[in-house]
Design a binder for these strands. Structure first.
Length: 694
RNA sequence: AGCGGGAUGGGAUAGCCAGGAGAUUCCGCCGGGCUCAUAACCCGGAGAUCGGUGGUUCAAAUCCACCUCCCGCUACCA
């Protein structure tokens, strides 16, 4: 790896995070793949030798569980999704040089080599750990399907990750009070021997690595905190049948996050073997001085900036030069949800008949790569109509049509200096974008050039010149054709299909995919290939309405469902999900006897004084007059109310609650309040302090 | 409280890492032009205390400190 500007003399590898083979792809997923594809194509435009590789992630517990539910074996289950992905990506012009999967021979072999090497270097050791066990089936319970209490923050958590609490990764056996989410039975702990990767030894290396790492800022910053907190050794085996067997250990398979990133290498190797190492040498890329660029979603930053470089380092491979971590996508402002069908599916987009390049453009340029990006059909239409149709398409069409009508192709003239300079500036912007890891700027470079084109043709008015001064008109249009050619090459990474059409219109030989930046300023052919035609079609308002009408019911339904089951894991039953809803708690089924209710001594009180408790964010100490006496009560309302306005306010107090101490302050009673905003319960009329509430 | 991401004309965004011209672009608005072009294009205009307060500097949207608010996960919500 180097830190020289691209292009370098070394082979580059661009990878995309492996799609997990257990569900349909939606356009949110596509953001990463389009981003990677655009970037890889852009590198090639610079003349950088590049392999763009990926593969399906086939292993792991969710696949086992889902396969079981469908009554098929995990392999065929995962393979089915794998094949679907393999077919889907090309439909969006995401054109991997190799697309493998983690269960294939290449990956299996390489993974075993990696682990062997890690063992040989002394970075793997065995340790007995507690594993959750389903006593009924006498089977180990996968971490993902164990629920319990996080040992760090005490909140409810999943076995492999404190998903609702502190977000920490949990090692097997760490979780407290484990319960199987599959059977609902309490799980036992059993001692099992497992393999650990001594990541804790590598914090110094990883810190330095992060200092060197290029790409998006979130990928550099997020893992720092982790290292500072102290890295734990990483359990790299699981009690499972499905996966890559751990050599010499019958019961163990490797944890998916070991073999998954190795697929990047395996896939590169497959590519290399297919085209020949004289064309692309995977060993030079991975063990020599390759430029490794990982394009991922921001949810898997840790794996790519801690575990993966740690593995690479230990086995003596190159470290990644860059990690580009994309933000998520939202749909009309809310998150995508696969399980609730709140999504625009990849296939659905295609079924609507839109060209893949329109979505590619939207995904790649609608905001910074690490920024979350919202999708709506309206925004989609706006950008297509305004930028692709109005600026880019319109410029190309008006220029080429004019050329075609008057000169039947490119008029004879030399490229003017003004336009040459403008095109050169666009090339510079393109190169800068690549070195900035910004696919957005890549799009801007082309659009800016097209906008220049529109200005240029407008200001020079060749339609007026063509009769009076045909030479001058020829000059203008000759320049415009060159700009069109530049657009074809520069826009190819974002819109490969449209760029190719344009290339054909211009009468160029070969494919625009093979054209590099140095072709941009070469003279275009005198004769056009095909008659100029509009490159982009607008999206009508009615069409947007129609699309929204299809989408909205689903979004609404999903949002409604969410309100009733937010925070619930996808696999949980309806019953379980309803129970812990924060938005709309279900009414309790269990009935209270009147006697029990009578036990509650509720009184009207009047707030006398309010003092914030120092060092506490929420707690305040209140003096409340409840008729017979004045009580000191502690309540968590500091941020929710204007404390100065509270004295004099009437409230309802639970008078016979046991005393407790909060933040060192005694609380003798409880203030009743509604909801998250602690809306204080008060009286409608003029009840006096001390009146009993019943 | 913690972590991450944000706060830039009516809306949406860029610029911030590597501090310096009139703060970018798109949509919308107002006025004009053009008629080669897909009611597209071009020109002009209104509209921003660049979240706040301090600091560093000749110079701050940009760097530093503190703070406020918003989003996501979560807390001391008796």
């Amino acid at each position: 790896m180097s830190h020289e500007d691209y292009p370098t003399d070394d082979p580059a590898v661009v990878t995309c995070g492996l799609p997990y083979a257990n569900g349909d792809l939606h356009i949110g997923h596509l953001r990463t793949y389009v981003g990677g594809d655009v970037y890889a194509r852009a590198l090639e435009k610079l003349g950088q030798q590049t392999a763009f590789v990926c593969g399906s992630d086939m292993h792991g517990t969710p696949i086992v569980v889902n396969a079981e539910q469908e009554g098929v074996d995990p392999e065929s289950f995962a393979l089915e999704w794998h094949e679907q992905y393999e077919e889907t990506f090309p439909k969006f012009a995401v054109d991997f040089d190799n697309y493998g999967h983690t269960h294939d021979e290449t990956n299996t072999e390489l993974t075993l080599e990696f682990v062997e090497r890690m063992e040989a270097e002394g970075y793997v050791y065995e340790k007995e750990i507690k594993v959750a066990w389903d006593p009924e089936d006498d089977q180990p319970l996968p971490d993902r399907y164990v629920e319990g209490t996080c040992p760090y923050c005490g909140s409810k958590a999943r076995g492999d990750e404190c998903d609702e609490g502190c977000g920490r990764h949990l090692e097997p056996g760490e979780i407290e009070d484990p319960v199987s989410t599959i059977s609902g039975n309490p799980a036992e702990y059993r001692e099992r021997p497992h393999k650990f990767f001594r990541v804790s030894d590598l914090s110094e290396y990883l810190t330095e690595f992060l200092d060197r790492l290029e790409g998006t800022a979130n990928a550099r910053n997020q893992p720092r905190q982790w290292i500072e907190e102290g890295l734990e050794d990483w359990c790299i085996t699981r009690d499972l049948d499905w996966g890559i067997d751990y050599a010499g250990e019958e019961d163990l398979v490797l944890y998916v996050w070991v073999d998954a990133p190795i697929e990047y290498v395996a896939s590169t190797k497959q590519y290399s073997e297919r085209v020949g190492s004289d064309v692309y040498d995977w060993e030079e890329a991975w063990k020599g001085d390759g430029e490794i660029v990982h394009v991922i979603g921001r949810d898997i930053i840790q794996h790519h900036t801690i575990f993966w470089p740690a593995m690479l380092h230990v086995v003596g491979y190159d470290e990644p030069r860059s990690v580009m971590a994309s933000g998520f996508m939202t749909l009309n402002g809310e998150g995508f949800s696969t399980s609730r069908n709140r999504a625009v599916w990849a296939q659905e987009y295609l079924d609507e008949g839109f060209h893949e390049d329109l979505l590619r453009y939207y995904l790649a340029t609608n905001g910074g790569f690490q920024q979350d990006v919202d999708f709506s059909w309206q925004k989609f239409a706006d950008r297509v109509n305004g930028e692709l149709v109005g600026d880019l398409g319109n410029f190309l069409y008006r220029s080429l049509l004019f050329a075609h009508r008057n000169w039947e192709g490119t008029p004879e003239a030399d490229l003017s200096d003004e336009v040459r300079a403008e095109i050169e500036a666009a090339i510079d912007a393109f190169e800068a974008a690549v070195n900035d890891y910004s696919v957005r700027k890549l799009g801007d470079a082309t659009l800016d050039l097209a906008r220049f084109g529109n200005r240029y043709i407008q200001n020079n008015e060749p339609w007026k010149l063509v009769d009076e001064a045909p030479e001058a008109a020829a000059q203008v249009i000759r320049d415009c054709v060159q700009v069109a050619k530049a657009v074809a090459v520069l826009f190819e990474p974002l819109a490969p299909g449209k760029a190719e059409s344009l290339w054909e219109q211009l009468g160029e030989d070969g494919s625009v995919h093979d054209a590099e930046l140095d072709a941009v300023l070469e003279a275009p052919p005198a004769a056009f290939g095909t008659e100029p035609a509009e490159l982009f079609e607008g999206v009508e308002d009615e069409r947007v309405e129609e699309l929204n009408e299809k989408l909205e019911p689903r979004v609404q339904e999903a949002t409604g469902e969410d309100a009733a089951s937010e925070g619930a894991a996808e696999t949980e039953s309806e019953e379980a999900t309803a129970a812990d809803s924060p938005d709309m708690e279900p009414i309790a089924d269990e009935r209270l006897s009147f006697e029990d209710f009578q036990d509650l001594d509720l009184r009207v009180g009047r707030i006398e004084t309010v003092d914030p408790i120092e060092d506490s964010d929420d707690l305040v100490r209140l003096e409340i007059d409840i008729g017979a006496e004045t009580r000191q009560v502690v309540a968590g309302i500091k941020q929710l109310h204007d404390l100065d306005e509270l004295p004099g306010e009437k409230v309802v107090v639970v008078a016979n609650l046991e005393k407790t101490e909060l933040f060192g302050v005694e609380s003798n009673g409880m203030l009743l309040a509604a909801g998250e905003q602690a809306d204080l319960l008060t009286t409608h009329g003029d009840a006096d302090p001390g009146e009993k509430v019943r």
